[in-house]
């Protein structure tokens, strides 16, 4: 993006920024403020979070150099990888019932490989499948344990607990 240019523009316009946009007295200075905070793409949720504590510094001009500190947040976070549920896959594989847990590991791997290739939609889809398989693996295992306990109460409990 054009982030190297943006911190330079506010320096020239800075005497306007603490006065007009935040007191909302004049709607005309808002278009220069909109590309300043809206353009990084994350929109409203992050702007109040990281931006707002810095505004008390801006009426004093030493607050101005804090504007270049904002883009590293967005550039450093980047796209958040979707959860691959690898821990759930491992847990259901090692502690639970098998074939579904193995499938969960396969999709967990797909999440990371697709995300690394930039296929974010595919990674999200694999993430959902990994979650489904891990969840159903745990549910099937839980149902089996319940059945086993009921059978154990009925008298046919396992001779040795080969779990």
């Amino acid at each position: 993006m054009s982030t190297p240019n943006e911190p330079q523009n506010p320096y020239g316009e800075q005497p306007q920024n603490p006065e007009d946009p935040f007191r909302k007295a004049d709607p005309s200075p808002e278009p220069p403020a909109a590309p300043q905070y809206g353009a990084p793409g994350y929109g409203a949720p992050q702007a109040p979070q990281y931006g707002a504590p810095q505004y008390p510094g801006t009426p004093q001009y030493p607050g101005g150099p804090q504007y270049p500190a904002a883009p590293p947040y967005q550039g450093g976070y980047g796209p958040t990888p979707p959860p691959n549920y690898l821990v759930w896959a491992i847990l259901t594989t090692v502690l639970c019932c098998l074939p579904l847990g193995i499938a969960s590991i396969v999709f967990s791997s797909q999440v990371n490989s697709k995300f690394a290739q930039g296929d974010y939609a595919g990674a999200a889809s694999s993430s959902n499948k990994a979650k489904q398989f891990a969840m159903w693996s745990a549910i099937v295992g839980g149902v089996f344990i319940v059945i086993a306990f009921i059978a154990g109460i009925a008298g046919g409990f396992s001779e040795n607990s080969n779990y």
Binding site: T93, V94, L95, C96, C97, L98, V140, G141, F144, I145, A148, F149, G152, F157, S158, E159, N160, S161, N162, Y163
Partner: peptide, 21 residues
């Protein structure tokens, strides 16, 4: 014996799974 149920895979197939034990 009798404290925990048997592994479902071992119970159904008679073979060990990676989680057995």
């Amino acid at each position: 014996p009798g404290h925990y149920p048997t592994c479902p895979f071992l119970f159904l197939t008679g073979m060990y799974c990676p989680g057995c034990g």
